[in-house]
Design a binder for these strands. Structure first.
Length: 267
DNA sequence: GTGTCATGCGTAT
DNA sequence: TACGCCTGACACG
C-alpha cells in the first residue's frame, strides 16, 4: 500500500529500531547480494523518506534507495525471526530486530550525489511541508494545461500522492479530476495542498487512509471502519455519495482509475 | 491451478 | 499509448 504516508511511517518506525545500530545485511533472493555484502557489518546512521522514496544512509555514506512500486512490502519482526521469503530482496538484522523487504520496484546503492539527484527530481512533499512548499506547489501546477487528476499524481509536482489520495483529495476540494489545472483558482490549489498535508500526515500517524470527516461518519465508529467506509470516492463507483447520495462515477485517467461524485465535483 | 487485479514508474514507440 | 518489471490476494472453476 505504498503512497507517501507509508514510506514516511516506515522511515519513522524502522528508524527507531535500526538508526545507530550495526546491521547484518543480506539478500536471500540474491538480487541485492553484492550490495548487501558491501554494507554488512556497517552502522546504519539514518533512515529518511521523501514522497514514495526511502533512504538508508550507512556510515560509509553509501545509501540504499528503495522504491516499493506497486508490490513492494516490508515486514518488521522481533526474535525468533520467521524464515525469510524466497523473494526477500533485502534483509537487515540486529539481535533485536529484523527488516524484511520483498518485491520492491527499486533497491540499489547510491552515493550522496546520486541521492540528491533523486530528491531534486521530486516536487514538494506535503508530509514534510517545509516553508514555501505550498507556494512552490501552486507555482508548479497553476500553468499546466493537464487535468488536475493527472497533475496531482505527477511526483515532480507534488511528491507522495497516489491513486487513493488522488480521488479522496479531489473529492474534498470539490474539483472534477478532468478539470484543467490552469483553470483552477490558485486559492483552490492552495486548499488542495492543505488537504494533502492534513490527510497524508494523518495517514502517516494512523497507518491507514481514513479521509471521511467525523461529520459524515459516527465518531465512535471511526476506529472500526471497514476499508470502504473510510473513504469518500476511491473504488465506490455506483455507491451513493456520502454527502449528496449521487452515485459515484469512475473513469480511466492514464491507465489508472479515478473516482468522483458528479454532483459534488461538477465538470 | 489459473487468471486477474492492485495504493507505481520507467522506457520504447 | 503500450508494455515490462516487481509480488500477493482473491475470485473462479
Amino acid at each position: 500500500m505504498p503512497e507517501g504516508h507509508v514510506l514516511h511511517r516506515a522511515a519513522r518506525l524502522q528508524g527507531k529500531r535500526f538508526n545507530g545500530h550495526e546491521l547484518a545485511v543480506s539478500s536471500p533472493q540474491g538480487r541485492f547480494a553484492d550490495e548487501a555484502r558491501q554494507l554488512d557489518g556497517q552502522v546504519l546512521e539514518m533512515i529518511s523518506a521523501k514522497g514514495k522514496h526511502i533512504f538508508y544512509r550507512f556510515e560509509s555514506d553509501d545509501t540504499i534507495h528503495v522504491h516499493l512500486g506497486l508490490f513492494g512490502k516490508y515486514r518488521l519482526s522481533k526474535p525468533p525471526f520467521p524464515t525469510p521469503s524466497p523473494n526477500c530482496r533485502l534483509l537487515m538484522q540486529t539481535d533485536e530486530n529484523e527488516l524484511h523487504l520483498a518485491g520492491p520496484n527499486q533497491c540499489r546503492i547510491l552515493n550522496g550525489e546520486e541521492v540528491d539527484e533523486v530528491l531534486n527530481r521530486l516536487g514538494p512533499d506535503p508530509i514534510v511541508n517545509a516553508k514555501g512548499d505550498r507556494e512552490e506547489f501552486i507555482r508548479r501546477v497553476e500553468r499546466r494545461k493537464i487535468p488536475i487528476g493527472r497533475a496531482i499524481m505527477d511526483q515532480n509536482l507534488m511528491a507522495g500522492v497516489g491513486n487513493v489520495y488522488r480521488s479522496e483529495l479531489l473529492f474534498q476540494i470539490g474539483v472534477h479530476p478532468w478539470r484543467k489545472a490552469n483553470e483552477i483558482f490558485p486559492e483552490t490549489l492552495g486548499q488542495l495542498w492543505d488537504h494533502a498535508v492534513r490527510e497524508l500526515k494523518a495517514g502517516e500517524r494512523v497507518g491507514k487512509i481514513i479521509t471521511v470527516d467525523p461529520v459524515d461518519v459516527d465518531a465512535e465508529k471511526r476506529s472500526q471502519l471497514t476499508r470502504h467506509e473510510r473513504l469518500y470516492a476511491y473504488k465506490r463507483h455506483g455507491k451513493p455519495c456520502r454527502r449528496c447520495e449521487t452515485p459515484i462515477k469512475h473513469e480511466d485517467i492514464d491507465g489508472r482509475n479515478a473516482w468522483w461524485c458528479p454532483t459534488c465535483q461538477p465538470a
